[in-house]
Nucleic acid binder design. Structure first.
Lengths: 247, 247
DNA sequence: CGCAGATTTGATCCCGGTCAAAGGACGTGG
DNA sequence: CCACGTCCTTTGACCGGGATCAAATCTGCG
């Protein structure tokens, strides 16, 4: 097993320090969970297809079962800006009374379990705990947005890219190989960088041996520990081998 | 009246395009509002005093009646980072189940109306609408965080400062003179800039005649229309007179 | 193959960070 | 009242990281 080779160094003091994303069904009985799942509607969206944004059956909360959702917000200039990605296993909540138009679009074939506002209200009357879980869900989104705020305000390009890769890695369940789902320009919108800079930083990480890129949008994490150390989040910043871009 | 001089140019097509912040008491009857106000506790904090963060009577939701609250979050490096300000008339909601420690601190003498979690739950049972208002409150915080995300990711220093000034102006009710409440270094943390850059941009705006600064932390808005045009938010970017920093 | 779109690499420039020093505001004590 | 110290703001000089422009690969597809 190659695992044995890594075992001694992969065993961190905090082997998994990923925060569990809030579970919409947390603290509910099996019967309640079943009741909710029956009320939710299972839908499959093709690549590039957008979820309905208005109407009575527009999704109010939802769960991504497989695939990825991208959330774009229209900019005042008439353009559009990628705000966030929702990976499989994560939940999303739509801002209801919101004139700021956000769009949810499937990336690849995407299965979602959705629920309209009226349905959710009906369920919440029977299961009060559901409202608390929804609140936690939105609060988690807020915490995430604030994390990116910190990232965009204070980090260098190198730290932003490593942070983003680590974030995706954790949220996808720490697989060997993560799926970036979007192209370089979109990654740039998430991190506040230009596509060329994203590319340069990722190639630098590849040359340093921290990651491998079998395909442009597939990233194999080769050294998660060093990657973490390079995010700029840890209290102990190590001296770090040279990641400088070479010209 | 000097007002007459400005009247023709102050009348924009959208004279007030500020979004009303969500009202915690929205849609409630007078009796319900009275019931809630009785259950809330009125407290006054001195300058620099922090609101309790744990314990059964730690505020869960609150309203700032006068003064300003600053919300700081501890960084992994051991430092602390200003995340947001809450001005008079605005509400705040605390992330309950949150290991990420945020601190609310009064700036100047600050009156708040607060409510512990247990009390809120009791009220919400009697007044279900209150839960919806809370959800809207948190969703508004999320929308705000996402706006700053856009600001930090895409705007120039000049656009960030004008955006920030305009944001404060709107949120303080568009007075002639706004109160920055914090020093340059803190404004820098909000906007992702260094204190010197904040200072330079603000002096540039003063020299351009858009604002005046009778005191370092008091800003008189002299030309709101141009200020708005310079935020980079408007669809029509005007040619703009020169705001370049002169050395 | 030929084409369009995405990524990578290169060369150059400029905005904003960094370091340093000079005001300014304000309180305390002589 | 002024001298002094502290903290904040402003200004200056310089530099580097990331943006920008441009061109060269790479990739998938009809």
């Amino acid at each position: 097993m190659t695992a044995m080779i890594h075992s001694w160094q992969d065993h961190d003091l905090h082997p998994i320090d990923v925060d569990p994303r809030p579970d919409l069904f947390h603290g509910l009985s099996k019967a309640q969970t079943r009741q909710i799942r029956r009320a939710f509607k299972s839908e499959t969206y093709e690549d590039g297809e957008s979820l309905p944004r208005s109407g009575v059956d527009a999704p109010f909360v939802g769960l991504v079962l497989s695939g990825v959702l991208r959330e774009d917000r229209a900019t005042p200039e008439g353009g559009s800006h990628l705000l966030a990605l929702t990976f499989a296993g994560e939940a999303f909540a739509r801002q209801s009374r919101d004139r700021a138009k956000g769009t949810l679009t499937a990336i690849g074939e995407t299965e979602v379990l959705t629920c309209a506002y009226a349905t959710f209200e009906r369920l919440a009357v029977a299961i009060p705990r559901l409202r608390l879980n929804l609140l936690h869900l939105v609060q988690d989104q807020l915490a995430q947005a604030q994390y990116w705020q910190l990232l965009l305000g204070r980090k260098t390009a190198h730290e932003r890219i490593t942070s983003m890769l680590r974030c995706f890695h954790q949220r996808q369940g720490q697989p060997d190989e993560i799926d970036l789902a979007v192209k370089r320009a979109d990654l740039g919108q998430l991190t506040g960088l230009k596509l060329e800079t994203v590319s340069r930083q990722m190639r630098a990480l590849e040359r340093a041996g921290l990651i491998a890129m079998p395909q442009p949008s597939r990233v194999r994490i080769k050294d998660a520990a060093t990657l973490k150390a390079e995010t700029g989040d840890s209290s102990v910043r190590r001296a770090a081998t040279d990641f400088r871009i070479t010209f």
